[in-house]
Design a binder for these strands. Structure first.
Lengths: 210, 210
DNA sequence: GTCTATAAAGCGATAGAC
DNA sequence: GTCTATCGCTTTATAGAC
């Protein structure tokens, strides 16, 4: 953007230190917007207002930046989802708990965090080594869902014949896919979450008889 | 694969013309396996048994190859889905029609076509101009789903309060997401399609009373 | 229809000045 | 903590031989 008057030499580096977090913020935004391939370190540096070589003071490699962003993305959505579930007592209605979890995941993805959306957008595009580095955090988030779903099934709220792993993959897959088309001008995240919960909980068919 | 005995000079080019379709087949498989970014024309050429420069006899650019693959991918899944729906009379049970459409989409994606799976895998990774070129075929397939869902809703089979466009985005998004984790060794496409249809049609909650 | 050779551009990464 | 300059590599694409 616009530059303030320069003083002596290398003024920007004194006035406006970008730092590790600034680089990550900018990179997460670019990855969310453009995907992994088109985002070079030169683009990240330019968007952050520094030169490409300067990035290597903070990070050892491009992969190191990507892993940091992927991990932060899972952490953000995991925390939101866990808090949403913890907000309900253990005996609360299964439908209400599931609605809250679905809503929390969608809000993290579509509203809150460039890191979470960057994670979903680029995970399938990064080198295998980067995916592997992010896997433990992914597994932990998946386990959080599996624990919730297993508990609800044991309580008799979920159909006994649904496979928990497959249901979790279906849920998270469907929620993450909204990133590709969601447009806040066509409807709120809240309305989207409510509609998704309706179908997942009760199905799309008109209920005639039981 | 294996080479037959060579005759004179440039034997491969005479014995084993790869041609436009051979290049597309190989490229579709590589895109499905590796995504868009890592697949260079050199890799495609090597897998096809020719040299990179030779590709430009058949195609004007890399983008032209990618567009051809994306279009063929939509065509394949669209045909399978339409045939599955046409296999049912107009008055057939809505549940049976929807199950057939879901099954057809998943089979095209996971069983049949490298082109369909490559489409889903790389669409979000290719340049905007390539996406734009593929959009008309995408829109036509989406319209096929919208027509089906609208018809079923008018017949009273689908809940009146579900938004058709959102339901279609939810369905196709959830089905496409299976590409990221489906493993035929953990369960058949048929079983997967059946389980997805169960949840989409009737929901995951145990039905107590109506 | 495929080959060889190469041009032009962009990439991740490194070294050393300030 | 950032800059400049550059190395080595890969990419898409082109030109001309066979």
């Amino acid at each position: 953007m616009a530059e303030r008057a320069s003083r002596t030499v290398s003024a920007a580096s004194i006035r406006n230190p970008v730092g590790r977090d600034g680089i990550l913020d900018v990179a997460a935004r670019l990855f969310r917007e453009q995907g992994y391939g088109p985002v070079s370190l030169r683009k990240v540096a330019e968007a952050a207002g520094i030169k490409a070589g300067s990035i290597y003071y903070h990070f050892g490699s491009k992969d190191e930046i990507v892993v940091a962003i992927l991990d932060a993305g899972i952490r953000a959505v995991h925390e939101k989802m866990r808090q949403a579930v913890l907000g309900h007592p253990d005996g609360a209605a299964a439908a209400a708990i599931l609605r809250a979890a679905i809503r929390a995941h969608l809000r993290a993805l579509l509203d809150v965090s460039d890191y979470s959306s960057a994670n979903v957008r680029i995970f399938g595009q990064v080198p295998q080594s980067v995916r592997d580095a992010n896997l433990p955090k992914r597994r932990a988030y998946e386990a959080e869902w599996d624990n919730l779903l297993t508990r609800l099934q044991k309580d008799g709220a979920l159909r006994r014949n649904v496979d928990i792993r497959r249901l979790r993959l279906m849920l998270i897959g469907a929620l993450n896919a909204t990133l590709e088309w969601f447009d806040p001008e066509r409807g709120s995240v809240e309305a989207l979450a409510s509609a998704y919960a309706d179908v997942f909980l009760n199905g799309m068919l008109e209920q005639r008889e039981v």
